[in-house]
Design a protein around this nucleic acid. Structure first.
Length: 652
RNA sequence: GGCUUCGUAGCUCAACUGGUUAGAGCGAGCGGCUCAUAACCGCUAGGUUCGGGGUUCAAGUCCCUGCGAAGCCA
């Protein structure tokens, strides 16, 4: 029987709007699930929504619907999100489902049977206006933070003997130091438990939207006891078949804000109920946005659907898992995202695929050739494969997604180096057919291995890679990459469009991304006027690609006259021109027209210059603008204007 | 206030239980190549490892202290 792997996300609170944090946890969980599935394990991925509690009751009342209607509506938002992000869960649990409520009641009864539940009194500062309790230090000038009056209220409540389980929990930490990850979180929790645990209230009578506590008629089960139980209720509870198969969970993935509930309350509840504890609770960090805390008031909340639509779910996921250590906090910015996409995905993986398939098509008609004898370059490539594989496997065991991806990308780098050192184009010219076959085969196999390894991270793009390579279904799992040269020869491949097109910086002004807003000495009277806010992206192009006139008006097109022209010293396809655009100084412009125009033919011509393009160094030559032209390669035609307009004339 | 982490090249981060010239990616500079998505490959960048003190044959890596940052304390 295959090993089982049961991974959970938290159940998300239905009042929340899905944001980057939810997406992060779930994408990580999905990646882990795909990885273990690829290893051949029997995997179960659970997610869901948390739908009980006073706040839900209040929110529903405020919008004039029943709590259930409210929960239905908002639960659906999460259910709709996951397919967009390729989160393929096996079950979606809702705390308002009967299958869940039954198990909550069963948990209560087990804990009660263990003698761990007793009736007591819950007391604290209660605000009628907020319908909530506050602790002494939460009070502001003796009032609730909202400003409402508070009074000392006592209500009957059932308590759980949490205090009884402190020693057992500490012992569990000793025996299973991997129970809480990362270690710094384990330390925090240990200290907390060592201080001594107090019994906790597990029922309320001040609201009714929840699971009724067994044996009572006006007590509702405390929301955390209710919510945490989802991890077993979704399996059918202690008597369920799925429970027998998957419990205890391999890992609960959570955000660090809910660590205590998962690392203290939940294991104690389980101990009381006589049930095994999950193997691990892994708390990941938070994302800041452009260096700032995410908050509604700042308006910098990152919408995962927006990111998936604009950059692709694969790239978004890649970034989140590659950028920071899982467990630490990280900073999200679109600039960093673009850098990752361009550097790792486009220039790295995408380009390696593109150049390999291009050569295979050109030299071998796209058919996978049979490899021959190995040389030194091949040994280096295979060594890189072996190292990457070992690093990858251990990183995934530790949930070190960033290390795992770094390991995979060392193989991408090794592939590029292999191309460089074997120079297939030279082999082709020399007619070294056997060697060329070997090189091309090894490249294809390298990409197959990379494709398989990245399936868990880039579900769509990696499948695309494997499809283009013509990899059969049985060579798409991780074990199939433990041995080199598994891919059969003779298969057809498809080149296709670039896997990840390069992204250009959307606005030149944003490109250098000044760290501190005010560093250039500016004229004081300008008062730092309109700092271009990255979030002010209202002028996004609509889906059909039409743009507003204002967008067009940003382009400064001018008539220009070619003054000098010469071949670019370092690029076969480029010409280096100087043009007169009606300005005091002539401008230098690089243009990719060397295959269509001889330098001498251009001097004196009238052309169209995009004058306000950000200057850019191209192969060592600073280009201050761009000439408009139609076509490409040898069939390119420069755009021009008839008549005798003077240089500098604006075109609009 | 107590406890726990952390402060390493311009940026983001590595360096297992203390041990050869402190590493990688990005950025920058120089060179190479032309199969490729202005891509790719190579070389270079010489950073008082936050400051100070100590232990040791040897410290980024342990101890003390100052400064700074983050997290936990129901």
């Amino acid at each position: 029987m295959a090993d089982t792997f049961y991974v959970t996300t938290p159940i998300y609170y239905v009042n929340d709007k899905p944001h980057i944090g939810h997406a992060y946890t779930s994408m990580a969980a999905d990646t882990l699930a795909r990885w273990h599935r690829s290893l051949g394990e029997d995997v179960w991925l659970l997610t869901g929504t948390d739908e009980h509690g006073l706040k839900i009751e209040q929110a529903a009342r405020a919008s004039g619907v029943t709590p259930q209607q409210h929960a239905d509506r908002y639960s659906q938002r999460f259910r709709d999100l996951w397919p967009v992000l390729d989160v393929a869960y096996d079950d979606f649990i809702r705390t308002t489902e009967p299958r869940h409520e039954q198990v909550v009641a069963a948990m209560w009864e087990r804990m009660e049977a263990a003698g761990d539940i007793y009736l007591g009194q819950y007391e604290g500062w209660y605000s009628v206006g907020d319908e909530a309790y506050f602790t002494e230090d939460e009070l502001v000038d003796g009032k609730a933070p909202s400003g409402h009056e508070v009074s000392w209220v006592v209500e009957p409540s059932y308590f759980f003997r949490l205090s009884k389980y402190g020693p057992a929990l500490l012992e569990h930490f000793e025996k299973h130091p991997e129970f809480v990850r990362p270690v710094t979180r384990l330390n925090e929790i240990k200290r907390f438990v060592e201080q001594g645990l107090q019994d906790i209230s597990i029922s309320r009578t001040t609201f009714s939207w929840g699971v009724q506590a067994p044996g009572t008629d006006d007590h509702v089960v405390y929301v955390w006891l209710d919510a945490l139980t989802n991890y077993i209720s979704a399996l059918g509870g202690p008597a369920g078949e799925q429970y027998a198969r998957y419990w205890p969970a391999s890992v609960h993935l959570i955000g660090k804000d809910i660590l205590r509930f998962h690392a203290v309350y939940w294991p104690c509840f389980l101990m009381s109920a006589g049930l095994p504890l999950p193997r691990q609770v892994f708390a990941h960090g938070w994302w800041t946005i452009d260096g700032q805390k995410m908050s509604k008031t700042l308006g910098n909340v990152v919408d995962p659907i927006d990111m998936a639509q604009r950059y692709g779910a694969d790239a978004f996921r890649y970034f989140l898992l590659r950028e920071v250590t899982f467990g630490s906090d990280g900073d999200f910015s679109e600039r960093a995202l673009r850098d990752r996409i361009n550097g790792d995905l486009a220039n790295g993986l995408g380009n390696l695929l593109n150049r390999t398939l291009g050569m295979l098509k050109r030299y071998r008609g796209g058919v996978v050739p049979a490899p021959g004898a190995s040389g030194a370059e091949d040994e280096a490539l295979l060594a890189a494969w072996g190292t990457a594989r070992a690093d990858l496997l251990s990183a995934m065991d530790d949930l070190a997604f960033n290390k795992a991806l770094a390991a995979i990308w060392t193989l991408v780098g090794a592939g590029d180096k292999y191309v460089d050192s074997t120079a297939p184009w030279t082999l082709a010219k020399q007619g070294a057919d056997a060697r060329l076959d070997t090189v091309l085969y090894n490249l294809i196999e390298t990409l197959r291995v990379i494709g398989v390894w990245t399936l868990a991270f880039l579900p769509n793009k990696a499948a695309d890679v494997l499809d283009r390579l013509g990899v059969p279904a049985d060579l798409r799992d991780v074990p199939s990459t433990a041995e080199w040269a598994r891919l059969p020869t003779g298969g057809d491949t498809t080149v296709g469009d670039p896997l990840f097109p390069r992204l250009e910086a959307p606005e030149a002004s944003e490109a250098p991304a000044p760290k501190k807003p005010a560093k250039q000495p500016k004229a004081p009277k300008q008062k730092q006027a309109q700092q271009p806010k990255p979030s002010a992206k209202k002028a996004e192009a609509p889906a059909d690609g039409t743009i507003a006139y204002d967008d067009f008006a940003k382009l400064q097109l001018r008539v220009a006259r070619v003054v000098t022209a010469e071949r670019h010293p370092d690029a076969d396809r480029l010409l280096k021109l100087t043009v007169d655009a009606g300005e005091p100084e002539h401008r230098t412009v690089c243009a990719g027209i060397a295959e269509a125009y001889a330098p001498d033919d251009l001097v004196g011509r009238t052309v169209v210059l995009l004058a306000n393009l950000a200057p850019r160094k191209i192969r060592g030559v600073m280009s201050q603008g761009m000439l408009l032209a139609a076509g490409d390669g040898a069939d390119i035609q420069l755009a021009t204007v008839p008549g005798d307009l003077p240089p500098g004339t604006a075109i609009s």
